[in-house]
């Protein structure tokens, strides 16, 4: 059974490397990319509900904060574990991220570490 991961990041090269990397090192991963918060919502509304969302905070337009708030408002979407992708120096992303999100990963991250973290969370969340 595949594990659907959605990565929301305005940087296409990050989406690409995460998708390629995760799917390569673990065949059970299926990574969906969304280049903006709006795109993420669009995908969710279309019924493409992932098992976990990797969410970048600093994005133009709808940022990671607002997207999280939108996910939080929806009774189905709020069940999806969210991992914040934060800059190391961003105290607020990590600080508040610890309170609301399932986990947070500081950029730049190692793909193997990311894979392990995702697996741990999915196991913990019984996904």
């Amino acid at each position: 059974m595949s594990k659907k991961i959605m990565i929301v990041d305005d940087n296409p090269s990050i989406i690409f490397s995460v998708k390629e990397g995760l799917e390569l090192i673990d065949k059970t991963f299926e990574v969906i990319g969304a280049e903006s918060g709006e795109k993420c919502l669009e995908l969710l509304k279309s019924g493409k509900l992932p098992d976990l969302i990797l969410l970048d905070i600093m994005m133009p337009g709808m940022n990671g904060w607002d997207l999280f708030a939108e996910l939080d408002k929806n009774s189905e979407w709020k069940k999806i574990p969210v991992v914040f992708l934060t800059a190391k120096t961003d105290v607020y992303s990590t600080g508040f991220g610890k309170i609301v999100s399932t986990d947070y990963i500081e950029k730049p991250f190692d793909l193997t570490d990311l894979k392990n973290r995702i697996n741990d969370i999915l196991k913990r969340e019984n996904v």
């Binding site: 607002d66 708030a69 609301v100």
Partner: peptide
């Protein structure tokens, strides 16, 4: 105050989460 550092909507989520917890 949280909204000033993040976003207003996110701040609501943060405080809601804390409250529920």
């Amino acid at each position: 105050v949280i909204g000033m550092r993040t976003s207003d909507k996110f701040a609501v989520s943060v405080v809601s989460h804390i409250l529920e917890s």
